[in-house]
């Protein structure tokens, strides 16, 4: 347990003439945001635990350009895209996994047209594969019998039709999943997408994340499961505002799997 996990960078591998099996695209939130960094670390532990030969780009990774593109700044998006594609292609990357649905969507759908073609997976899909193949085993552990509700990230769900992978991962924990009224294709946004994360909300009568947090809390769950660093922030803030942070945890699915395995 206390063994030191070494996360190699592509540059270090390249120095030994190696390429990683899979690149872990950490993303900006996963690199800098304190809450999201916990998810990054949990997922890195899982990657290590499953014996996956992975690497990160480290300081060579940059924003995919997603928030710039959604805000209408196509110039900045394409500048970032070309820069990242140059680096990814330079290392001969074929396969990418990321815990951020925004990075996932951009890398998977928008980079191919600019010369960056990779097999891109969201960490929920990767975890499902590992569980299905038996490389990763879980018992419910701390979560056994707990009531979990899962919040669909827009850029994973509607944007890319990934609804079942995260649910199947959660189900492996011997928990009871309680679905919100607005789930899957009808899932309600956390309020962060489309670059809203980086600006004040427009004038209205409620914050989007409060509306969503209220819906989740209405089910009296033990855990609100998320699969996106921005949803994580929004839901965590919403739960805090409703003063429920002591009884309801907001956790990423990677954190749940890592915790259940005492990683």
């Amino acid at each position: 347990m206390e063994e030191k996990i070494k996360v190699p960078t592509c540059a270090e591998l390249a120095a030994n003439g190696e390429t990683p099996e899979i690149l872990f695209w950490v993303g900006c939130a996963g690199s800098f945001d304190d809450r999201a960094k916990k998810v990054t670390k949990a997922f890195a532990k899982i990657l290590h635990h499953t014996g996956t030969k992975f690497a990160i780009l480290g300081t060579e990774e940059s924003c995919t350009g997603d928030p710039a593109k959604r805000a209408g700044n196509e110039f900045l998006f394409q500048m970032m895209a070309f820069q990242n594609i140059q680096i990814l292609n330079g290392y001969g990357i074929k396969k990418i996994v990321t815990a951020c649905p925004h990075c996932f969507n951009t890398l998977k759908n928008e980079y191919p047209g600019l010369g960056g073609e990779y097999e891109v997976m969201h960490h929920s899909q990767f975890l499902q594969q590992m569980l299905d193949s038996g490389k990763l085993k879980v018992q419910g552990g701390a979560f056994k019998g707990k009531k979990i509700t899962y919040h669909d990230p827009c850029y994973l769900g509607r944007a890319n039709d990934v609804y079942e992978a995260p649910r199947e991962v959660i189900e492996k924990l011997d928990v009871a999943i309680a679905e919100m009224h607005r789930s899957r294709a009808k899932g309600f946004c956390c309020g962060a997408g489309g670059a809203q994360m980086f600006k004040e909300a427009e004038k209205g009568n409620k914050e989007v994340n409060i509306e969503r947090a209220e819906e989740a809390l209405g089910l009296n769950p033990d855990v609100i499961a998320v699969a996106c660093p921005f949803c994580n922030t929004m839901m965590t803030d919403g739960v805090k505002l409703k003063e429920k942070q002591d009884s309801v945890k907001v956790l990423d699915i990677a954190e749940m799997i890592a915790q259940a395995n005492d990683l």
Binding site: V7, V26, S31, F32, K37, K41, M80
Partner: peptide, 22 residues
């Protein structure tokens, strides 16, 4: 994004600091 490679004002050199916290 343009200067730091991230939507927040962090130094790009700190991007992989988390690997030392494992």
């Amino acid at each position: 994004v343009e200067n730091n490679g991230a939507p927040w004002q962090f130094s790009p050199m700190d991007r992989a600091n988390w690997i030392n916290e494992l």
